[in-house]
Design a protein around this nucleic acid. Structure first.
Lengths: 141, 141
DNA sequence: AAAATATAGAAAATGGTTTTCTATTATTGA
DNA sequence: TCAATAATAGAAAACCATTTTCTATATTTT
């Protein structure tokens, strides 16, 4: 993956792309599901990346600030999805938490006078093909 | 406000609308901003409603389950907005957390084959007229 | 009315997240 | 290049929102 655009975004706000963050970012960007900080920490360890949990929290924080990560609240727990550098919407599987990027056109919000829209979220939730199949097969009472 | 549709929704899942919940629901539904559990607890106390913080958490939990409350994650903290019984979208002021209901048509999500959309969220974030004015006036360096 | 079920609330426990502090590492600037 | 400044890493402790326990009370159901 090309990290230079992310590096630029980071630099704009005086954030540094250290080797720890770079490896962690690699793991994060390759994950097809959204992950909790603890899960990302776990993932990193499986890839022999030795970093502290604190570092994971801090990376997710800066990535969220620059828009490369997006936090999701599902059933009370906070997950982060890797979003790269361009705006899009998401389909989130409520069963396996896999995230599929959607490239629909953005909805138009008709807000009252003098309201200033500076961001929006527009995401779909449901069941992905795999989980759908699994639930159909496994449902044997 | 008419609580009977909410009461029905609660009953469907064997939840009870006790007097504590009823008063708390009144306060919650009249709040124009989204609130944290602690803030709702605070609000209740100001209205001389003596309930425990635990009860606030539990009410928000059941209201979320029946779709009458919606949790929002803003800057790492979880807020709940009162949503009543009909689906709509939201404008959230990032400054004062006031919530304005939007009644736009729902966006159409074009998902790949065999993806099953069962819910969606589509919300706008920005600055409300009051906060916009405040920031313009108060910005005196 | 009696039995079963759900709720209220205080107190304690839990656990995700943040803070603190020190040692490194990277960037700036003389 | 060599300081000086600023940002980061990481372990440990602190913090605090949320959940769990447990007992008493209230509401449904039978």
């Amino acid at each position: 993956m090309d990290k230079s655009p992310i590096k630029e975004l980071l630099n704009e706000q005086k954030f540094r792309l250290t080797s720890e963050r770079e490896s962690l970012l690699d793991v994060f960007s390759r994950s097809s599901s959204m992950v909790t900080p603890a899960q990302l920490y776990e993932l990193a360890q499986q890839h022999d990346i030795r970093i502290g949990l604190t570092t994971v929290y801090r990376l997710l924080e800066v990535l969220t600030k620059i828009g490369v990560a997006t936090p999701f609240l599902v059933d009370g727990t906070i997950y982060y999805a890797y979003c790269g550098c361009n705006h899009h919407h998401h389909f989130v599987c409520l069963s396996c938490h896999r995230v599929t990027d959607l490239h629909n056109s953005c909805p138009s919000f008709h807000v009252p006078e003098n309201f200033d829209v500076i961001a929006h979220r527009s995401d779909a939730y449901g069941t992905c093909p795999d989980c759908r199949k699994a639930s159909e097969v496994g449902c044997n009472p």
